[in-house]
């Protein structure tokens, strides 16, 4: 669970985050969206304890993080950085994963078991050198590092930026699996299709303020709101809106096809 109460944050007297409050229940999956410079990454770092809020409080798993060391927060929450190269240094993928576990004080026997399990699960070759992998694979190594630690909360900063479509889908399937196993996920993204497909909830940030929060499929319909936040709706949602279909009724290709089929059938029926 993640809970923020009236969180504000300043950097050299310039407000970056202004009075943000929200609550994510255990097992929730939310997308944090907004334009460049809206404060999304900063907010994620505040939750991780990397930045301390000037005002307000952050609760992780029911516990206030004020005064908690980042290493203590790291036992509950994992953070995936936008650029995996900022954290990868191990000579092999295996060594990279083991390092993260050693830092948390997990016994070497248990660590070995977890590392091997994670490698198998995410389809990674533990003996490869991380720097010889593609950007998408390195991003998955970084995710594997989080996965091995089994955090209850995952904070993801643009996990699919710079990846091609296949890598993006692989990445998101891993994330979705972790979510199904109970992890609470807050993910910063610019990709509205990814947000719609994977994150049922959405938080919209603009100029450091929480502009809106709610169900992704509802917020996605508010074109004017998205425009103000430098965003654009996912294609099928935008199309549904223009066709006057009720929110949530036809948000993907399948359901919109069904809707068209139903309309054609109804029309054909009255004609007959």
């Amino acid at each position: 669970m993640i809970r923020l109460e009236n969180v504000s944050f300043e950097l050299s007297n310039r407000p970056i985050i202004n009075d943000v409050g929200f609550r994510l229940e255990p097992g929730a999956f939310a997308a944090l969206v907004g334009g460049n410079g809206a404060g999304k990454s900063t907010l994620l770092k505040i939750i991780m304890g990397l930045y301390r809020p000037a005002r307000g409080a952050v609760y992780i798993d029911g516990e206030a993080t004020r005064g908690m060391r980042v290493s203590a927060i790291a036992k509950k929450a994992g953070f995936l950085f936008q650029n995996p190269d900022r954290q990868i240094f191990g000579a092999t993928v295996r060594a990279e994963l083991a390092f993260g576990l050693a830092e948390l004080g997990i016994s070497s026997e248990e660590a070995r078991r977890r590392v091997e399990g994670t490698l198998e699960r995410l389809g990674l070759d533990g003996s490869r050198a991380p720097m010889s992998l593609s950007r998408g694979e390195r991003q998955r190594v970084a995710l594997a590092g989080l996965f091995a630690r089994r955090p209850k909360i995952l904070l993801l900063d643009e996990p699919t930026t710079g990846l091609d479509y296949r890598e993006c889908m692989q990445m998101m399937r891993c994330v979705a699996e972790l979510n199904e196993e109970g992890a609470t996920i807050l993910m910063v993204t610019h990709d509205m299709e990814v947000a719609l497909d994977f994150a049922p909830r959405m938080l919209i940030l603009a100029d450091g303020q929480l502009m809106a929060q709610g169900l992704t499929r509802d917020l996605m319909r508010d074109a004017e709101l998205l425009e103000r936040a430098s965003l654009m709706p996912a294609q099928i949602v935008a199309l549904s809106a223009r066709l006057g279909i009720a929110p949530g009724e036809a948000d993907d290709v399948d359901s919109l096809t069904d809707w068209i089929a139903a309309r054609r059938a109804a029309k054909g029926g009255t004609a007959r």
Binding site: G34, G35, N36, T161, G162, H190, E227, S230, L231, M232
Partner: peptide
């Protein structure tokens, strides 16, 4: 070469 990689949807457009 991927000039909009780091940009939000509106800036990309």
């Amino acid at each position: 070469d991927e000039p909009t990689g780091e940009l939000d949807p509106k800036s990309s457009v």
